[in-house]
Every structure is written in structure tokens, then in C-alpha cells.
Simulated scan of single mutants.
Amino acid sequence: MKIVKFILCLLFALVFINAGLDKFLHYSPMPKLTPEQEKLFAAFIEIGWLMPLVGIVEIVGGVLFIFPKTRALAAIIILPVMVGIVLHNVWRDPNQTGIIISVVMFLINIWVIIDNREKYKALIS
């Protein structure tokens, strides 16, 4: 079970590291966007600090997610970005192509949070 968990967490981390790096290096091609999605992304770009912030959170969270000792922190750091990704795919993706992968990623994140719940008790007590 530890090997499966490590592999899932490593893949999860690599997806986020890749997404974060792409926000700075722009190496992935942009998918075809609907006019509504183009407006949304134009607004994100207009807010000059938003995409770099998300990119930094994705990179830092992804790197921390690799190591078991820092995985609990990474899961909390990535959670708001993950919620945004799921909500975007549910409400803004007309073809619903990204919902499955985003829900799977969200469930991995929640699993890690639940798995590390003992580490969070000091924060909420």
C-alpha cells in the first residue's frame, strides 16, 4: 500500500509541478477556448499577480507533496487551487473533459488530508 500511495502522490506532485512551471515558461499549447473561457482567462491575465501566485503555489505544493514528511502541509497548500480546478471544470468546461481527472486529483488530495488528520489536530484544537 505504501508503494501505491507513493506512486499516486508522485504523479499528483508531477502534475502540479508541470502546471506551475507552465504558468512561467508557457510550453504547453493552449486548448481551443470558447468565447466565455477566453474572457475568463483574459481576466486572469489582467490581474497580473494571480497566475504567478497560482504557479508558485502549484510548484511549492507539488515539490512538498513528493516527500512523506511534508505531504500533509502540501495537501493543505494545494487544496484551494484544487477546489478552483474542480469548480472550473464543473461550471466552465462545456465538454466536461476535465471533470474526471480533476475529481480524481481532488480525491487524492482529500485522501492525503484524511490520512494525515492527526498532524492537523494541533491546528484546530
Score class of each variant (00 low, 15 high):
Phe65Tyr: 14
Ile124Tyr: 09
Val81Asn: 05
Val57Asp: 02
Phe44Ile: 09
Leu10Gln: 02
Glu36Ser: 13
Ile99Asn: 03
Ile99Pro: 01
Tyr27Lys: 04
Lys121Val: 12
Val4Gly: 04
Ile3Tyr: 12
Pro31Gly: 12
His26Ala: 13
Lys5Arg: 15
Gly55Met: 08
Lys23Asp: 07
Phe44Ser: 10
Ile110Asn: 06
Leu73Thr: 15
Ala75Leu: 09
Val57Ala: 14
Asn89Trp: 00
Trp91Thr: 14
Val57Ser: 05
Asn95Ile: 12
Ile45Ser: 12
Ala42Leu: 08
Ile110Arg: 05
Asn95Phe: 13
Thr34Phe: 02
Ile99Tyr: 01
Phe6Cys: 09
Asn109Phe: 00
Ser102Met: 00
Glu58Met: 08
Ala19His: 10
Asn109Asp: 09
Lys39Trp: 03
Trp49Tyr: 15
Asp22Cys: 08
Lys2Phe: 10
Gly48Arg: 14
Val81Arg: 00
Lys5Phe: 09
Ile101Cys: 06
Phe44Ala: 11
Gly61Asn: 04
Ala74Glu: 03
Ile124Leu: 13
Lys121Asp: 08
Lys121Ala: 12
Pro35Ile: 04
Ile3Ser: 13
Lys69Ile: 09
Ile77Tyr: 00
Ala72His: 14
Ile100Cys: 10
Phe106Lys: 07
Ile7Glu: 04
Val90Ile: 15
Trp91Gly: 06
Asp22Trp: 07
Thr70Gly: 04
Gln96Asn: 14
Pro80Ala: 05
Pro35Ala: 06
Ala74Met: 06
Phe106Pro: 01
Leu79Glu: 01
Ile17Gln: 00
Phe6Asn: 11
Lys119Met: 08
Lys5Met: 11
Lys121Trp: 04
Phe6Tyr: 15
Val60Lys: 06
Glu36Cys: 03
Leu123Glu: 02
Ile56Asn: 04
Phe16Gln: 05
Met51Glu: 10
Trp49Asn: 07
Gly61Ala: 06
Val112Lys: 00
Glu58Tyr: 04
Met82Pro: 00
